[in-house]
Amino acid sequence: MADVQPNSEQPRPRHPHDADHEIESLAEFDRAVASGGLAGRRVQSLDLTDRTFALLSTGTAASVFLGCAMEPDAAAKVRADGALVFPPLPDLPFDPYRGSLYGPDELFEGLSRAGYEATPDARTYHWYQRTRADGDVFASMLRSIHDDAVSDALDEHLAGARVVGLMGGHASERGSAAYAGTARLGRLLTRGGLTVATGGGPGAMEAANLGAYAAPFEDSMLDAALELLAKAPHFTPSLTDWAQVAFEVRRCWPGGGSSVGIPTWFYGHEPPNAFASHIAKYFVNAVREDGLLARCHAGVVYLPGAAGTVQEIFDHATPNYYASRGGPTPMVLVNRAHWTEKLPAWPLLQALATERAMAGRIALVDSVDEVPDTLARLATETAS
């Protein structure tokens, strides 16, 4: 039986020259031109209409231009050099060639003026629904290019970070004790030097990203934010109201801590949350799920959830069972009654771990208060 799952996404190793090889800003473009040219470079999603002279006077052999706006004579010249040019697609509600992760302001642009349905996030979801139903091969290709670009940006962002995943369902409502507890856990882990990563949606996912956002502030900030958010406990019936309250919190306390959200348009009826500072949003849920878990080298915490969280537990258990990612990583399930009675994933996980290295990397705890010490203990056992 193979150790590596055939469709799994592994975080891609960074080439030592990637910082020079990929050009994702005009400043990087100008430095490359000044230091010897663009030959062999990958230029992502830049407006180069003001860089026509540089393009005409610089070698671009074997370069690739992904979604870069250029004047016609510049585009003709780089093609004549042998460069590969993927033109911008201005009618799309998203940029398939993007060189960076999303931010909340980008995905929710237009929320305050026209409501959620006018935002890029909602328009991209509707495009996805329409093109998936059509079976359009060109749209499928664009989705694949987009998701690969997002994975590349995610690896760049997380390089060197100690990432801990917090997984849980969307049912945890603002104003509940469970939501507040998850937020305090996200804050504590962030203050401990970890990068919190979630599925990027509402409920427990939002609470964990909120906690990370609150990390730089005094403790009273989180209490006040929780009270404010409770005005719109759930993203139904009004997703617009739910999102606007979150942005009200961000306006009251700008400059919060960093964390990552990794949602998907496959579940587009669930919006991304506004507290993840960096958002890797995918079309393909399988790539999103496996990629999220694969990047959480510091462990994953599983809060009470339903089918999606159960899936994540066993998506994580499989590479831990086979030790196919360099060794098992910690798994902490929170809420004994939930995981042994309501959805008894824990007994099965224990059975799988028998006589395996992962046996020392799994734990079941009663509350979020036990999580930091448990993660530290499992990490120590992992290191030993």
Results as ranks from 00 to 15, higher is better:
Pro90Arg: 13
Asp373His: 13
Leu142Phe: 01
Ala178Asn: 09
Val284Phe: 13
Ala383Ile: 11
Val284Ser: 14
Asp241Thr: 02
Ala337Phe: 13
Ala149Gly: 10
Pro254Ile: 13
Glu71Lys: 15
Gln10Ser: 14
Gly193Glu: 03
Phe283Gln: 06
Pro90Thr: 07
Glu227Pro: 06
Leu56Cys: 00
Ala2Asn: 14
Ala243Cys: 13
Met141His: 14
Ser8Pro: 00
Gly291Gln: 06
Leu142Glu: 07
Trp127Ala: 01
Leu293Tyr: 06
Leu228Phe: 14
Arg288Lys: 09
Ala118Gln: 03
Ala32Ile: 05
Glu9His: 13
Cys296Val: 02
Gly175Cys: 10
Ala76Phe: 12
Glu312His: 14
Thr190Asn: 04
Asp3Met: 14
Gly201Cys: 07
Ala39Cys: 15
Arg14Lys: 13
Glu173Met: 14
Thr195Cys: 10
Glu106Ile: 07
His17Ala: 14
Val334His: 03
Leu229His: 02
Gln129Ala: 07
Ile23Gln: 08
Gly110Asp: 00
Glu117Met: 11
Val33Asp: 09
Gly67Ile: 02
Gly308Ala: 05
Thr382Ile: 10
Glu248Cys: 10
Thr374Phe: 08
Leu158Phe: 03
Pro6Cys: 02
Ser151Tyr: 05
Ala294Trp: 03
Ala317Pro: 10
Leu107Arg: 03
Arg130Leu: 13
Thr354Tyr: 13
Leu89Cys: 06
Ile313Tyr: 05
Gly326Cys: 07
Ala383Leu: 14
Gly257Trp: 05
Gly257Ser: 04
Ala2His: 12
Ala114Gly: 10
Ala114His: 15
Gly193Phe: 02
Ala379Met: 11
Ala274Tyr: 11
Lys281Pro: 00
Ser324Lys: 04
Val310Ala: 11
Leu107Met: 05
Leu375Tyr: 02
His316Asp: 09
Arg288Tyr: 12
Leu210Met: 09
Ala171Cys: 04
Asp223Gly: 08
Asp81Gln: 11
Val85Lys: 01
Arg184Asp: 09
Ala280Ile: 09
Arg251Asp: 00
His17Leu: 12
Ala306His: 15
Gly168Asp: 02
Glu289Val: 12
Gly99Asp: 01
Gly193Tyr: 08
Phe247Leu: 09
Gly201Asn: 05
Gly211Met: 06
Arg187Pro: 08
Pro87Asp: 02
Glu381Ser: 12
Arg42Cys: 01
Val85Arg: 06
Leu101Pro: 04
Ser63Phe: 12
Thr198Met: 09
Thr354Pro: 00
Asn7Cys: 10
Cys68Pro: 10
Ala75Asn: 04
Asp121Arg: 11
Tyr125Asp: 03
Leu26Glu: 01
His316Leu: 14
His338Pro: 05
Val163Ala: 00
Ala183His: 06
Ala69Thr: 11
Pro11Thr: 01
Asp219Thr: 03
Ser238Lys: 11
Pro90Gly: 05
Glu106Leu: 07
Phe217Trp: 15
Thr190Leu: 00
Tyr128Asn: 06
Leu222Gln: 06
Leu293Gly: 10
Asp147Glu: 05
Glu355Leu: 08
Phe53Asn: 11
Gly193Leu: 05
Met331Leu: 14
Met141Asn: 10
Trp346Gly: 04
